[in-house]
Each structure stands twice: as structure tokens, then as C-alpha cells.
């Protein structure tokens, strides 16, 4: 089963167990062990501590292994911290980023056009996917953001403590074609992959392990044993993310 992992995180976080941490070597071992061919890499430090320091760690780690693709965190230039957003996005792409992470809760950002509009317009120009962990923004504001920027692919990643099995999920996904969701724990909708494939299509789901927060075998087992055709499985396992990455305007 070929896997393209939409979310691996570098480092450690104070609210996790000590064994839920990673460094470059443990990530490389995990890629080998789980047969993950490529992965988008973020770092805890970029959204829990300091964006530019964390992004430096992300780029350094990605440089150590060609399987790792940087997914740095981004901020808007709200108070002159990051400069022109178009230049910011262009610079990140030039350094190898093919997706960026947006962390509204951790970075004190509202899902509001006055705050994020210019940044997301810059992402739109380059068709750069924007990843948002679910704990950072609730589903409905997430969908609102996606609806206002329909040419930006958004990747919504389940994150504890939510279980992503409420009855809002499918209608919102169905109505927001540029909103994608990863299948990593705690995505806990029983027969959820099957139901989403049947009702919306497999094109909106992406494999992610969320290592080292989650055990990658959970997402692999969830996907492998989903009662879906091989073509849908391939789409979720790697083709959908591959398509989003290839569509980035370099």
C-alpha cells in the first residue's frame, strides 16, 4: 500500500506523553517501518513556540530526507511580523514548501477576512494547500474560510479531543469542495471512510498518520480495512495529496 502522509510533526509538546515525540531520525525510521513514501512535515515549535524558529527546524529536517516535504506554519502580516504575504508564500515555495500550516488557536488568529484574507489570497495565487488541525479551528468556521477562498485547497486534520463523528461533518464536506480531511485518529466515525466515499466521493479524504501524536498503524489499519474499492483506497492513500502538491504553482 503506497502511502503519502499528509501530517507528520517534528519535536515534542508539553501536553503529550514523553514517548509521543520525534526527531529527524525517529521520523525516518517511522517512514521505513510503516512504508510511508512521502510525508508533509510540520514542527510543534512552529505553532507552540515560535513560528520562524519552528519553521527553521522543519526545513532543516526536510533537507535531511527527500521523502519529507516542508509544511511550515504561516502567519498573516498583521503587525508587520512577516512582511508581504505574496513574498512570504513565494519564498516558502521556493524553499520547498508544498503546503502550509495555519494555526488560528495557537497563534491567536480569527477566521476573519480582515485577519487572514491577504494571506489566503496569496496562497490562492499559488494554489498552495493550507493545512489546519481541527483543534485550531472548529469545522464550521473552517468551512466558512474555505468557502470564501474556493481556489485554496484546505486540509482539515482531526486532532484530540474531538472525534469527528458529529452529524455536521458530511453536509459540510459535501458543500465545500475545496475542503479535504485527513483520516488520522481521532477520526472516529465508524464506517466513516466508506460513508464519505459513498456519499461525497473518495477525492476529499487524505491519509495522514499524525505521527508522533498518533500511532501510524491506526490510520493504516483504518484505511486498509475500509470496505472501499482499491481505486478509492489509492486515492486516499496517496493520489489525492499528490494531486494537490502537483497543482502548486511554482
Amino acid at each position: 500500500m503506497k502511502l503519502f502522509d499528509a501530517r507528520i510533526v517534528l519535536g515534542r509538546a508539553i501536553d503529550l506523553e514523553p514517548f509521543q515525540s520525534s526527531d529527524v531520525e525517529s521520523i525516518r525510521r517511522a517512514l521505513d517501518r510503516y512504508g510511508i513514501e512521502r510525508a508533509l512535515l510540520s514542527s510543534f515549535a512552529s505553532f507552540r513556540f515560535d513560528v520562524s524558529y519552528g519553521n527553521r527546524l522543519t526545513f532543516e529536517a526536510a533537507a535531511a530526507d527527500p521523502r519529507l516535504i516542508p509544511c511550515p506554519a504561516v502567519l498573516p502580516d498583521a503587525v508587520g511580523e512577516v512582511g508581504d504575504e505574496d513574498a512570504l508564500v513565494g519564498g516558502l515555495i521556493e524553499r520547498g514548501a508544498r503546503c502550509v500550516g495555519l494555526y488560528p488557536k495557537s497563534c491567536g488568529l480569527a477566521a476573519d477576512e480582515r485577519v487572514l484574507g491577504r494571506l489566503l489570497s496569496a496562497a490562492c495565487v499559488r494554489r498552495l494547500p493550507v493545512q489546519v488541525p481541527a483543534g485550531e479551528l472548529d469545522l464550521l468556521p473552517m468551512a466558512g474560510l474555505a468557502a470564501r477562498h474556493p481556489d485554496v485547497p484546505f486540509i482539515y486534520c482531526p486532532y484530540p479531543p474531538g472525534l469527528y463523528r458529529d452529524r455536521n461533518l458530511l453536509p459540510v464536506l459535501a458543500d465545500t469542495p475545496n475542503l479535504h480531511m485527513t483520516i488520522n485518529p481521532p477520526f472516529g466515525l465508524n464506517e466513516g471512510i466508506e460513508t464519505i466515499c459513498a456519499r461525497i466521493g473518495s477525492g476529499r479524504l487524505l491519509f495522514a498518520s499524525n505521527y508522533p501524536i498518533a500511532e501510524p498503524g491506526a490510520a493504516i489499519g483504518h484505511l486498509a480495512y475500509a470496505d472501499i474499492p482499491p481505486g478509492d483506497l489509492e486515492s486516499i492513500a496517496f493520489r489525492n495529496l499528490e494531486g494537490l502538491i502537483h497543482a502548486v504553482r511554482l
Binding site: E17, Q20, P185, P186, A214, E215, A218
Partner: peptide, 9 residues
Amino acid sequence: SGCPNGLVE
């Protein structure tokens, strides 16, 4: 639900 990495080990 969280399936924490390393917990089983």
C-alpha cells in the same frame, strides 16, 4: 480514540 503513538509499547 487518540491512539497515542508509543502507548501500546
